[in-house]
Design a protein around this nucleic acid. Structure first.
Lengths: 243, 243
DNA sequence: TCTAAAATTTAGCCTTGGCTAATCCTATCT
DNA sequence: AGATAGGATTAGCCAAGGCTAAATTTTAGA
């Protein structure tokens, strides 16, 4: 944008495009564990693979990702912090839209996606205060702290549950509006307890019962979009430490 | 960026740059009455004159301004509506930042300037509802309606007042942070009544007294930044209709 | 009226972030 | 091992919006 500067540290806050890439890489790493491939990022951002390839090189230049040719990109520490800043903004903004402006689940994502690039850190922190410093957004996703720390994740998709367990819904995927609606209409939102009646390997259907004894059979796509946490509180923390 | 379309009507919402130009032209027209010159717009947007010249041509192309070479630009009806949409957003956002997020006068402008390009009309209208459909922002500036109608302006700068009049502060210019602070600290904000003690042609100093009998001598720059309205309520509405 | 200063426009260049088409790796299948 | 499909990269292009320097038009002063 015209401002010349040789400063190699480039402390500008990244453009909105750059931020979108960082967030996409972060999200992909979060659930595939691995480096984000050109193709995955392209799909997520609705952009051509060539553009992604191009941007990977620029992000590397800026010190935001590590990129080995033909091998995908992973965030550097700085890249991760930047991504988390955006995630924090996004989730706080979503919370605000849902709780104070009467948005419904589907409308929220798009608006937050635009706003997260326009607000300052000062705005974000004051918004957090207005909202009472929530630790999760209404989907159940944890909100990174202002210092860029994200709560460790101990939930797993309902599709991996075992029958007979008591579970608590921790979050629902916010990618598909129709699913969000389905869950929302039935009060299958973060918070309530569930009982797992059956997990059918045959077709991936999971049968659950909620606290009102209502029973639902969820097909695999739905079961993969609902995340749950084991409900056994403070007694089973063995075998998770080392190994 | 990249979406091909021949549609001459170009119903895209304008880019943030285009919006900035439209708003600048609108604001300049508002207080100079005339077409906005290249130089004025350049100064207001901190951009080179060449860039403005360039953009004037593009805005003309888009049907947003009327531009005669070497003669400045004026908004078309469409351009004006677009500018008013942004002004509405800006003023509602400022109101929200001041009233709900604890911003102070100086911080507000910059944040609103960025946000006004990122929010949707839906957001704007819901925000208006949250705020109770205010008709003025905290500076005293009227907020255009969702339909793009702006209240007629009947205030004038204090520098044009005459001694002995009772006036009500209707707004303060929000361009200079130091001035805003000066006014804010002394509760010279939209609302209160003033008595004009003296208007000194010699040096432009205006001497006023507020409702607490506090007396202030304001130099011309300050007096030009405070806008007032005659306080004589519902008896003098003659000679304003036709003619 | 003529001329010089000021404002405006034009020309030519840059960066960001897209795109398509062509080429190049990698990995997989036979 | 070798052929080949599919993902990744490169090459070359585009538009938006900036910039500076040079040219042009207006305007104001003598």
């Amino acid at each position: 944008m015209g401002l010349r500067m040789n400063d190699p540290a480039e402390s500008h806050s990244p453009s909105s495009s750059v931020g979108d890439y960082l967030k996409a890489i972060w999200e992909l790493a979060a659930d595939s564990g691995d480096a984000a491939s050109t193709k995955e990022v392209a799909a997520r951002l609705s952009v051509s693979a060539a553009s992604v390839s191009n941007m990977f090189a620029r992000l590397q230049e800026m010190g935001l990702v590590e990129h080995e040719r033909y091998r995908g990109a992973t965030l550097t520490e700085r890249g991760k912090q930047e991504a988390l800043r955006l995630v924090r903004r996004h989730r706080l903004i979503e919370t605000f839209l849902l709780e104070h402006l009467g948005y419904d689940w589907q409308e929220v994502h798009e608006e937050a996606e635009r706003l997260e690039h326009a607000v300052s850190d000062a705005f974000t922190d004051r918004l957090a205060e207005l909202l009472g410093h929530p630790e999760h957004d209404p989907h159940g996703d944890p909100i990174p702290s202002a210092e860029g720390i994200l709560e460790a994740e101990d939930s797993f998709p309902l599709s991996q549950a075992v029958a007979g367990r008591r579970l608590r819904i921790s979050k629902v995927r916010d990618e598909d509006a129709a699913m969000l609606d389905y869950f929302g209409d039935r009060n299958l939102v973060p918070g309530p307890l569930l009982m797992v009646r059956e997990v059918r390997a045959l077709d991936g259907v999971v049968i659950i019962e909620d606290e009102e004894r209502e029973v639902y059979a969820l097909g695999e796509p739905l079961a993969r979009s609902m995340f749950v946490r084991d409900e056994l509180s403070a007694n089973e923390h063995v075998g998770k430490g080392a190994s």
